Every structure is written in structure tokens, then in C-alpha cells.
Amino acid sequence: MSNIKIHVFHCGKVCVAPDIPFGGEKTNIIKASGLLTPKSKRLWLPVSAYLIEYENYKILVDTGWSREVSPQGLYDKKAQINHMSRILYKINQAIIPKGQTIDEQLKNIGIKAQDIDYVLLTHLGCDHVSGIKTLKNAKHILVSKDELKFAQKNRLRYTKTMWEGINLEQFNFKDTNDGPFHKSYDLLGNEVIKLIKIPGHSDGLFAVKITYNNKFVLLYLDGGYASKSWKEMILPGISSDKEKQYKSLQWIRDMSLNENCIESLANHDSDIKHHIITF
């Protein structure tokens, strides 16, 4: 019997300008926003969430889109603007077919919100926290203190109403040997699930490293948008600090090439399909 099971879910899609995932170091906020990008040039990318089953724990990483952005499972401009604001709608459109929200997919495998021990919000971007209210009854919902502080200062980039009324538990990264900036948080205190700070896309973004018997899976979320990001060292177009973003991506590359890495996964990689990792 496997000791760890990781479900890789797709919870809808997001439509963005090519410069958001693959803008590189020389992109600018106008190109990344997509405000001047023709619809025909924009990309539809998957939005992922992950369920980690380990011993008696059920741990969810991010939430994907809420049903509110796509009430009938179809593209709905009005619903999206109401849910995420007109500005964010201009930058990233959404669609989530029926049955693909995280609560719908968890229900299909017999899991309710109250069964979830931890929801880990790697950062507070709209396509990562949109579905959080359907999981408000989870036992713990965690976000880094650095990320919440960053979100409060960057209101055009974030939609606070998505997590208003949710009991967010803040944690501080600790000084460790992990990650590009030697900052991490050991979720269970046994070094199996570590939240590793990878700033650059946002100040409080973290990767999730799941380790067992020296083998590991790395979820690096928006530290890069696909495997080609670290293979070709292409920075995402949205950043809070380009230098930190590059250093974080270099660490992702090093970890992904490590012989003990089973899989390393970006949140929006079109090559990654819904699957289950066991080890």
C-alpha cells in the first residue's frame, strides 16, 4: 500500500496574455496584463489544485475557480466581473465546466470540506483562492503572513472579497536550509510536507515539497508556469521582484533535476493531465 497519494486536479481554465506565463525578464506590466493583446493571441491554461493523502491527513493545496465565475459551466462575463472585479477580468478570464470545481471533485471521491485537515493557500491570486468559501469548514486554512501582508498592499492585483469571512490562519516561515532563501515551514513537524518560500511572483508564495523515503514531489505553483519555464529559465510576467523570482526559478530547476524528484508540477502547465501520484 502506498504511503502518500497526491491527486492532481484541474479546476477550470484561465485565459491570459502569453506574457503572463512566458514573458521573461524583459516583459512589462502592459504586456503581461493583456490589455493590448488580441483575443486570438491569448492562451487558455489549466488551473490546478492538489489533494495530498498521507496517513490520516487530507491536505488540499489551493482551490482553483469557484462555481461563481461560471454558474452554468459556460463562459459568463458578468459572473466573472462580479466575482473577481472588472480589472482582474480584463487580465484573466475564467471558465469551469460542470463537475470541475474543487468541491465538486472532492465530493466525487467522498470527501467533504470538514474532512480536510489543512487547506494550503500558496498565494492569494484569484485563480488559486476563488473556491475557498466552499471549503470554509476545513479544519485549518493556512496562508503565509508575508502573502497576506502583500495582498493587503496590492489591492488591484487581489480580490479580498474572495476570502472575506474565512478564518485564515497565518504562519511565519522559519530559518532553515530549505529553498532559495532558506525559509520554510514544516507543516506536520516531521519533514514530510514542507512549505518552502519561493518569492518573486508574490512576496509570500510558497512551493510544497512532499518527501517520503528520500523521494519527493515538488508543487511549485506559480514559481514557473510549465516545465519549460525552468528548462529554459523563462520568468513569468507577473512579479513582485524579478531578482527573487529568478533565484526561485533556479531553485525549482535544481530540485526538478534532482535524481530523487518523482515529479515537479507547475499550476498552469498544459502538458499536465489529471492524475494520481503514489509513492
Score class of each variant (00 low, 15 high):
residue 121 L to W: 05
residue 194 K to C: 02
residue 15 C to R: 11
residue 45 L to Y: 09
residue 185 Y to N: 04
residue 254 D to S: 09
residue 174 K to G: 02
residue 129 V to H: 01
residue 53 E to S: 06
residue 80 Q to K: 00
residue 7 H to P: 05
residue 138 A to G: 10
residue 119 V to I: 07
residue 269 D to C: 05
residue 196 I to V: 11
residue 180 P to A: 04
residue 130 S to C: 10
residue 254 D to K: 09
residue 222 D to C: 10
residue 216 F to C: 00
residue 66 S to C: 13
residue 58 K to Y: 01
residue 101 T to Q: 00
residue 12 G to S: 04
residue 144 S to Y: 00
residue 170 Q to H: 03
residue 32 A to N: 01
residue 81 I to L: 09
residue 53 E to Q: 05
residue 70 S to F: 11
residue 145 K to Y: 12
residue 86 R to N: 14
residue 218 L to T: 07
residue 250 Q to G: 00
residue 242 K to F: 13
residue 265 L to K: 05
residue 236 P to K: 02
residue 6 I to L: 00
residue 68 E to G: 13
residue 224 G to M: 02
residue 233 M to I: 15
residue 252 I to L: 03
residue 95 I to G: 10
residue 88 L to I: 13
residue 170 Q to R: 10
residue 87 I to Y: 15
residue 22 F to K: 05
residue 175 D to R: 13
residue 57 Y to H: 07
residue 20 I to Q: 14
residue 39 K to C: 15
residue 125 G to C: 14
residue 118 Y to C: 02
residue 69 V to H: 08
residue 270 S to T: 14
residue 277 I to V: 00
residue 39 K to S: 11
residue 96 I to H: 05
residue 212 Y to I: 15
residue 85 S to D: 15
residue 8 V to G: 06
residue 276 I to Y: 02
residue 248 S to T: 09
residue 11 C to R: 01
residue 32 A to L: 04
residue 44 W to A: 05
residue 73 G to D: 09
residue 40 S to T: 08
residue 133 K to L: 05
residue 193 I to T: 04
residue 26 K to E: 15
residue 155 R to I: 12
residue 190 N to R: 01
residue 142 L to C: 01
residue 1 M to Q: 12
residue 221 L to S: 08
residue 44 W to P: 03
residue 184 S to R: 04
residue 175 D to W: 05
residue 269 D to G: 04
residue 103 D to V: 12
residue 257 L to R: 03
residue 141 I to V: 01
residue 255 M to R: 10
residue 30 I to Y: 06
residue 202 S to Q: 02
residue 7 H to M: 08
residue 157 R to Q: 10
residue 55 E to N: 12
residue 247 K to D: 14
residue 239 S to P: 13
residue 41 K to V: 10
residue 167 N to S: 15
residue 16 V to C: 03
residue 245 Q to W: 12
residue 54 Y to Q: 00
residue 130 S to P: 05
residue 140 H to V: 07
residue 198 I to G: 12
residue 276 I to P: 08
residue 274 H to T: 14
residue 172 N to L: 12
